[in-house]
């Protein structure tokens, strides 16, 4: 049975499972196969910048190092905010109820979407009750952490008439752009005789 997330809208709670949606599940997928001149399948590798060292899949690791380039055990690290205060771990959406806050469509349109989840319900009655909260194109926002983390993604929940979706990502702060000219330039007509236009001095 899928793990359920508890969503709170106002005083009501709704339990639903979330399922990741991507292009592969909607349109299928493409695999690229490389073959050599004899028709044998090729493997991919990485050629390092020295121009001679080749590395196979999994041959490079990301390591966390201190200033002496000594590997550090990640479990000992301390997370801090820019003001050097300690960062607080935000819980996963599975760990505690998620409170949904009414948002605008423009707020949703500001979101760079990085992941999409489709909601499924064990009990269709819960779904129909939840639908009543999404009348009039209502959308809701909430902080999203699939796993507990120090930073939460921005997330929105919407209903498209048959399915509930969660869109997660980063909400952009777009700024209104203005023209930086303080006043329009007024061109006044002046009387200039043609004799004043000395072409000889050019």
């Amino acid at each position: 049975m899928a793990r359920l997330v508890k969503f709170n809208i106002g005083t009501e709670s709704f339990d639903a499972a979330i399922n990741k949606l991507d292009r592969d599940k909607v349109y299928g997928w493409i695999e690229t196969v490389a073959t050599d001149s004899a028709g044998n399948t090729c493997l991919t590798a990485s050629l390092l910048n020295d121009g001679r060292t080749m590395v196979g899949s999994g041959g490079i690791a990301q390591k966390t190092l201190d200033s002496n380039n000594v590997e550090v055990d990640k479990s000992t690290l301390v997370a801090k905010l820019p003001d050097m205060s300690l960062a607080v771990l935000q819980p996963s959406i599975y760990e505690q109820p998620v409170t949904l806050i009414l948002a605008s469509i423009e707020d949703l349109l500001d979101l760079d979407v990085t992941a999409v989840y489709e909601l499924t319900f064990d009990d269709l009655e819960i779904k129909s009750k939840m639908q009543s909260k999404f009348l009039g194109n209502a959308v809701y926002s909430f902080p999203f952490n699939y796993r507990s983390d120090y930073e939460a993604a921005d997330a929105f929940m919407l209903f498209n008439g048959s399915v509930f979706f969660i869109l997660t990502g980063n909400k952009n702060q777009f700024k209104f752009l203005t023209n930086e000219i303080s006043e329009p330039i007024v061109v006044e007509e002046t009387e200039v005789s043609e004799e004043e236009l000395d072409f000889g001095m050019l």
């Binding site: 196979g56 490079i60 966390t64 190092l65 201190d66 200033s67 550090v72 000992t76 301390v78 997370a79």
Partner: peptide, 21 residues
Amino acid sequence: IKYFTPNDEEVQTLRVLKTTL
């Protein structure tokens, strides 16, 4: 978020070669 060692030293993440082909 930035990560620090218990000695308050900021850490860095780098790509390291595990093994060649």
